[in-house]
Write a protein that binds this DNA or RNA. Structure first.
Lengths: 112, 112
DNA sequence: ACAATGTGCAACTCTGTAGTTGCACATTCC
DNA sequence: GGAATGTGCAACTACAGAGTTGCACATTGT
């Protein structure tokens, strides 16, 4: 549906713990918050909060399986974000080269 | 020289004010901290700090011109970051598809 | 029925950082 | 020289968010 905000993705990725979570999730394919917490030096609650942020950014989804919730990573969303960053870079390059071109243009009437 | 940490770039971009700064800089080509501050609802000092973060991430450079310091954006760095995010996404995709393939493989070699 | 495991929510602490103000120093222009 | 403009540094406030603890509720297994 609506692809998640680039803002949200950037905020989500700008956190080492969350990147570790994504790393673990792509290693394992699927994991619960409790399982993830055991593999890192934080409590389950902290993991749950991070997963919430990642979910808001669209980088992760969870599905309920009985008493546990299994999360998995969504690489396509990261790819999305990468593409949009690239597009943004292109816009900036265009702007800057336009300015540069203007600066290098000989002023009208100054040319013999 | 050494390409800036992806971490630093993500942290730098995960801030609306800093993205606004980059936007202004690519619009204008070059600008001083004071000039930038006049175009946004924060003080010059705040702008200076943000420019520091952007500089650490390699997204901006400053050069001294007389009594003022003119900053300009570096789109190549953003492009760098986008590429590395894309590469990371590729790694994740590979991992996940490997897991998926394993899961779909009929169990052979189930050794007692 | 009961113990074990897992989730969900709320309140709390604490550190990082975005933003401010204030002042000293440097450079340009009159 | 003096006013204006711009930068640099330091101390301070304030708020977001990373992490914790504690407890109630849900699900599984014996």
């Amino acid at each position: 549906m609506n692809q998640p905000d680039l803002d949200a993705v950037l905020v989500a990725l700008a956190e080492p713990t969350r990147r570790t979570l994504l790393d673990l999730l792509t290693e394992r394919g699927e994991a619960s918050a409790s399982a993830l917490a055991q593999a890192m030096p934080v409590t389950r609650q902290a993991v749950v909060k991070h997963l919430g942020v990642l979910d808001d950014a669209g980088l992760v989804t969870g599905r309920r399986m009985g008493r546990e919730v299994l999360y998995q990573a969504r690489p396509e969303r990261l790819e999305d974000a990468a593409r949009r960053m690239s597009a943004l870079a292109a816009v900036w390059e265009t702007r800057l080269s336009a300015i540069k071109r203007l600066a290098e243009t000989p002023e009208e009437g100054t040319q013999p």
